[in-house]
């Protein structure tokens, strides 16, 4: 095979099957949209129960996180995600799945070094960068 590395990479890329972008986007759109709609339902419900807006928002998050943890625990979240892609990754349910799934997976390594040490294996970066960004945001806000 007479090819440079670069030529080979381009050649392999050109022969590879491509993702069906429009179909994937469509699935992500309607499943992700549906999850947000369910969120809106809980938000409205909690507000109708006379919780103030912020508390209702927090309760909505907790409810969705619980639903995602339940579906992950019942071994079905990943089956939905296979089809939904970003539709189940981007909503807060995806964050919850990223916390719950390693916790379950590393049970065999024990509850301290397994479950607890791995619980933020995937979602840890989200918290880390989220907090760092919020600190920068606070600094900017403080001095402006």
């Amino acid at each position: 095979m007479k090819m440079t590395k670069k030529q080979y990479q381009q050649y392999a890329e050109s022969k590879a099957d491509k993702s069906k972008l429009w179909l994937d986007m469509f699935n992500a759109f309607w499943i992700g949209g549906l999850i947000c709609m369910i969120g809106q339902f809980f938000l409205n419900t909690y507000m109708n129960l006379n919780f103030d807006k912020e508390i209702a928002g927090t309760l909505t998050s907790i409810t969705l996180v619980f639903a995602s943890a339940l579906l992950t625990g019942l071994n079905v979240y990943d089956n939905i995600a296979k089809k939904a892609g970003a539709g189940t990754l981007v909503p807060i349910t995806g964050f919850a799945n990223a916390v719950v799934s390693p916790a379950m997976e590393f049970k065999n390594e024990g509850y301290v070094m397994g479950v607890a040490a791995n619980i933020f294996k995937i979602a840890g970066p989200v918290i880390t960068y989220g907090i760092i960004a919020s600190v920068l945001s606070g600094i900017i806000y403080l001095f402006l």
Partner: peptide, 17 residues
């Protein structure tokens, strides 16, 4: 899967390759 990629219950999408 758990060693090289993700926990089994993690909701990821596989690429065509």
């Amino acid at each position: 899967e758990r060693q090289f990629r993700f926990p089994l219950e993690y909701g990821g999408q596989r690429t065509p390759t």
